[in-house]
Design a binder for these strands. Sequence first.
RNA 1: GCCGACGUGGUGGAAUUGGUAGACACACUAGCUUGAGGGGCUAGCGCCGCAAGGCGUGUCGGUUCGAAUCCGACCGUCGGCACCA
Length: 872
Amino acid sequence: MHESYDPAAVERAAQQYWDERRAFEVREDPARTKFYCLSMLPYPSGKLHMGHVRNYTIGDVLARFLRMQGHNVLQPMGWDAFGLPAENAATANGVAPAKWTRENIAHMRAQLKSLGFAIDWSREIASCDPAYYRWNQWLFLRMLEKGLAYRKTGVVNWDPADQTVLANEQVIEGRGWRTGALVEKREIPMYYLNITRYADELLEGLDALSGWPERVRVMQVNWIGRSEGCEIAFPYAADTAAVAGSAGVVKVFTTRADTLFGATFLAVAAEHPLALAAARSDARLAAFIEECRRGSIIEAEVATQAKKGMPAGLHVLHPFTGKPLPIWVANYVLMAYGEGAVMGVPAHDERDFEFALGHGLPVATVVRSPDGSYEQVQSPWIAAYGEYGVTVNSGEFSGLASKAAMETIATALELKGLGRKRVQYRLRDWGISRQRYWGCPIPVVHCAACGVVPVPDDQLPVLLPEDLVPDGSGNPLAKSPAFYECECPRCAGPARRETDTMDTFVDSSWYFLRYACPDAASMVDGRVEYWLPVDQYIGGIEHAILHLLYARFWIKVMRDLSLVSFGEPFSNLLTQGMVLNHVYSYQSDTGRKRYFNPAEVDTRRVADGREINEVVTQDLGTIQVTHEGLGKMSKMSNNGVDPEGLVARFGADTARLFIMFASPPEQTLEWSDEGVQGAWRFIRRLWTAVYEHVAAGTPPPLEPHSLTPSQRELRRLAHQTLAKATDDIGRRRNFNTAIAAVMELLNAVQRFPAATPQGCAVRQEALALAVLMLSPITPHVCHVLWLALGHTQPLIDERWPVPESEALVQETHAIVVQVNGKLRAHISVPASADEAAVRAAALAHDNVRKFVADRPVRRVVVVPGKLVNVVI
RNA sequence: GCCGACGUGGUGGAAUUGGUAGACACACUAGCUUGAGGGGCUAGCGCCGCAAGGCGUGUCGGUUCGAAUCCGACCGUCGGCACCA
């Protein structure tokens, strides 16, 4: 053993040992308990950032910990290799996405290996490999057969300058990010997966997922958004029937059928057929609809925009009173939710209220609060009353409690054929078509004679050509006859291959099954039944809804196709908090934004206290950039911190220890490398402690019964630390406090005078326990220190130790004494002392007597082993 | 706007079940060691105060013998909002 710690040499030795032994390659073994530890697969953006390091270190700590507890642990890794950034890079640099992606994978794989993760690399997969994505296509075809995949039109962002579809991310303040052109909406045919068919099961399944964080389950519940309510049909008035060409109804969905008599208008989406019909003879309305059409398709923007509307000049009839209600076209009504129309009840709905006030529409009260505090018309109107109560002014339905009114009105509507009770979901079907090149081709062919024809299974995979370079305008596949010209599988006539590719969420919806059987000749095989479901899934909280919901849906579909036996993919979920860093941007004249890495930004304060942020660029010289605040580390905002520098300077163990010590895993972490010194210093102190201990000679066997009090005390601390670390890692997943406890143990070891042979034996045990406890977190240095402590079996094959109950016995308890809740004294009592003795000892303390003085003691609260509170 | 979370010293954080607020670290200050390097060791370090003591966990209010923790309102930050992944 060297006197000084050399991380590079230590890490080389440990990694070489693991590699030679193929220590992390695992096989199915029915005799052993399996543990599938999975981290979300990375997008190969080019370099790792600290968010990745955090994610994979958490996974690695758990994988190594459970391995030490005797489990057969699978920890795989792969690449979410399709997606937009590769196309952007291609457009910018003229490199084909395939080459760019594969080079990034090679670099990032090397970075992951340098961090020493216990990954079974023999199972590595990349979603851009045909051997993987052919099964996306295969399952899509099965879904098509079952009617679970279907075709309908959908709305996309259209950049008229580049003649291309934009991702939401590429729309900045309503303009295309490259062209600055005003983005339009465009309706195109797309494929949808029928996730809403599984809405109820996805919702109910959440109750059983006790290993998931509550916050994620709540978010999914709200996303699915099941609401029980009523569909109500408003018959056309004569003017509407004339425009529509026949009699008919406008359907709305409401959860508040009890407020039906308070409806004073009907609002429809700009895309609603009646709005379009009315616009044919109303130029102003047509202009308004055109304005809405230019609006955003992004929900966050739709929800925050000013509520605008215009009367359609048409009417519907109230289903009970027959009174005509005006139809308004409103930008806050979404065509995608419900029926694309809502009844406007200003008195009892906040949004309707705001709209009515803005457009001078009448407000009619039809609910009063049970205690009468809200009654009749307010003057002037200040707010809607959205609570339940008792119906008023509702004809024959007046005087009913809200719930009863909903039932009664629904029944009456059903009798009239103008409504029925119905369940509505907020969840929409999953649109998977992307007008992009770098993705999995959708396996269908369009034939003039046969229509849409699925590609037969024996012609899979539909291979994605890898040599195309997108130029930012349109999909290169659609400009590549070699790809799209084909023969119809049905009639053998000339046909055109579908050029849309799949959403990359498809790739990440089942990759964890393929790790179990990466070489299977079918989509999955029996090995999946051994390894799945995933015992511990770890990934960013930003995936709480979309990815996790899509994966749950996909697995349920596979179960219903009898491909797997289970219906939930992830038994336990740890949602890692994001690693944030500052975001700096520069907006050029064309409106295009450029992001600068915080490492390049020079910040200084000017006289008036403002901060000036400057970047020296090659093309623009020195420019001032805008500090946009904090954001998650991402390629998009160019604020990632590459761990490479850290690893080169301090080694992988320091990087791992630092990120795990910085905060508990679920918490958002604002990036700063202050503190990395502490992790580095700690590992070196541990190294030195072991070195000096070993240099003092081999200690005799430990004799627990012949120890001095101070030796017993250190031994107790060592075992207490072990109990805490076991609980912190195994149950609480609070790695930072486990590390802090081991730091305290090391501090105690260093203060401990090990002058005698038994003193050395106690120290030997404490150091060995410290090395074992740290080994999941800093595996390289622990590998070397373990051997240095005289062990012949390598650490990787060691078991996680169990604290000895005898060593944990405590003879006295430290009790705090409060007077009126304020700390006044510390006392020490024998562990055997009863409540009366503790109380007496507390009251006898000088300082307690001083504060009590001659005031009467009203009450004494005794918390055994902890605290006494004297109330005066 | 809606849904979810978070807010504690100069900084990261600890306080696990309502029971000592600030563990463990970083930074900083002073001293020692000098091998003069991003080395090691010792001590100090929430705020006010000479002290006794008082105040203190985003803000305001409540429950309790006792609140960082529970409840209500508000403010701020972060994530998601269906084509970033």
